[in-house]
Write a protein that binds this DNA or RNA. Structure first.
Lengths: 369, 369
DNA sequence: TGATCGATTGAATCCAATT
DNA sequence: CAATTGGATTCAATCGATC
């Protein structure tokens, strides 16, 4: 492709605009091989049943929008394969795609990507620092979402800015798990009535990392499920061109206004992408899981008390069960107790505070990022 | 099922042994619905990559390429669906399965699980604290693996020891991302020549968390890809029965020796924190019958509501009569209410939750057997 | 002005025993 | 079987009001 060709075809593209309508039809209006990167946040097909309430009886505002309802897995698969095929057509040969999802849909999406000829490069885990808990205690807290990064084809020369991501990660190679907060506070777009404008707005920090790592200034970034336009906003900040597709007029309106207010290379917005580092909390249970202490092993205190370790990381002493802190406090008749310094294990005839084991884990974590 | 039946069928099971051979054939020798939990670490099908690899310099016929690709994934899918179907047959109706994989195969596995009728409960990220770096700097450090937890069917009453996992995590609800080190050091099994015995040995800590959280002492745990037997070793420690299937004689030998050297934790250590639901139900009427509360006495809530106790153990408030729960819910305009924590009685000028009285009765019941 | 407390909220496949 | 009833269940962050 000559330079002249590229300019001509670029001029024909609806750059930095939001196309109205269904994503497959809108993509069909684009020429072959015109896009460098696609970021897609398709419906998750959550299949929610009744309502859910928090322990305080307040109701959880569920994602029950029409756009997230599919009749069956088969229907969802057809939808997925159709838009993935069209997306692949508009991708340049060395282009790549990111798709985000949860366990409800991501396995359908991942298999479809492979079947359609994409080549998986990594999957990335967005570990939410502040997820919604599991209110009924029936499952694990759903604390992450999954992103799949794939090139158009095997052997494609996809863009990967290794050094930039390493720099973003304080000089350490970027890993496949990203700890980022959910979109809330001032970043969360709200309608005039104060209600959130979109039920599933993605954080700027997430898109920032994707676009810094996998696109270049001047690249064309397509988002076929544009919503309130986080992809467009970040693309503009970073000096990339973007094309959005969104069928809901309300979302389009919010996105237009939002992006109009974005300035290129807004320093304040870039700051969002740096996660805070705090002293990691180490649950006592990890010492048991890792075999540093055995269930049934006896811990002792310097005051002569003792208790036994259980498989779930609780202790059982004389008439008391609970955490290392609770049992220590109970045995001493104290209101509180720091179990880490109170309890000791016996090694080679010597008593050693269990805090030593916690320090071991912490230094491992520090070494390995 | 009578006790005799259960003993007979249990006696017929090859408990705590490793079956030699292909996992589908070996599972076929087991009866229907005989297993409580399955942990599976299937092959990642690395030959799939080789099949798909094409020279980059010359154009490969597109149709030929697509057909070849389809055939390769189809082979893996057939393998996956076959063993998942057989696994589902041997699972008890309320049984569950865990499968671990990487991005190469987990999307095939997850879609197959859904298609075969399993019901996804969570996906879990094993976040490796010490992964192998990406030496060439061409992708992100692949720092995690994915586990899928699914029940045999939608609506199954799967085992989930919520309190035990919460205890393992020092009192905070367990999340879907687990930070654990890879299997190395003394835990890593080695042959006589010092070479690692198995390329992908899973850490004890990972299986510990799965089995503590999703099985009970005495449960039967099946691992159809047993390898060097981490599942069996942890099952034995935790007082669960296990069945392994492995076709490689060398791995079987290593696993046998390893498990023989494992000690079961003592019984007290295996008990985990019990859920409140498991405690005996106490009708509110008993508090009245026993004279702990008198008919006509007034109960109050922290929100300022009040109601009077009646002789039959119901309450009467402003325009409402019924159980402690019903009256509480009605007065608050809430869909439900836990009357035990909502209502308080007044003693010496202090308000005390009526749940204290229930606890008195429960501890009496425990004392007297 | 800073600290503290309470209310609110987020992609959620979220109950179990008894009648 | 369905219908009813008992009663168990939450973490991090933001925002605003109060001290």
């Amino acid at each position: 492709m000559t330079k002249m060709d590229r300019m001509t075809s670029a001029a024909a593209l609806p750059l930095n605009t939001i196309l109205a309508g269904d994503c497959v039809e809108a993509m069909a209006s684009l020429p072959d091989a015109c896009v460098d990167l696609i970021f897609a946040d398709p419906p998750y097909n959550l299949q929610l049943r009744g309502d859910l309430r928090r322990p305080d009886n307040s109701r959880v505002d569920a994602v029950d929008d029409d756009w997230d309802r599919f009749a069956s897995f088969e229907t969802y698969d057809t939808f997925t394969r159709t838009w993935l095929r069209e997306a692949r057509r508009v991708l340049k040969p060395d282009g790549a795609i990111w798709v985000i999802g949860s366990y409800h849909n991501i396995y359908r999406v991942g298999a479809a990507l492979q079947d359609e000829g994409y080549w998986l490069l990594n999957d990335v885990i967005w570990r939410k620092s502040n997820p919604m808990p599991n209110f009924r205690g029936k499952r694990l807290t759903n604390a992450h979402e999954t992103l799949i990064w794939a090139s158009r084809s095997e052997g494609a020369k996809y863009t990967f800015n290794y050094e930039a991501l390493k720099a973003l990660n304080e000089g350490i190679q970027m890993r496949s798990d990203w700890v980022l907060p959910i979109c809330s506070g001032g970043e969360r777009l709200k309608n005039a009535d104060g209600v959130k404008a979109h039920p599933t707005q993605k954080p700027v920090s997430l898109l920032h990392r994707v676009l810094v790592g996998c696109s270049k200034p001047g690249d064309v970034v397509l988002d076929p499920f544009f919503g309130t336009g986080t992809t467009g906003a970040v693309a503009k900040m970073l000096g990339r061109d973007w094309i959005g597709i969104e069928r809901d007029a309300g979302y389009r309106e919010v996105a237009e206004a939002r992006i109009a207010g974005v300035r290129k290379f807004d320093k304040a917005a870039l700051e969002v992408s740096r996660p805070k580092r705090a002293e990691p909390r180490v649950p006592f249970g990890q010492l048991v899981e890792r075999g540093m202490l055995r269930p049934g092993e006896t811990l002792v205190s310097s005051t002569g008390k003792s208790a036994k370790v259980r498989a779930d990381g609780t202790l059982v002493g004389l008439d008391v069960k609970g955490s290392i802190h609770q049992v220590g406090a109970a045995l001493e008749g104290a209101p509180s107790c720091n179990g880490w310094t109170y309890w000791h294990f016996v090694k080679d005839g010597q008593t050693v505070p269990i805090d030593v084991l916690r320090q071991q884990i912490r230094s491992e974590m520090a070494e390995h990022g």
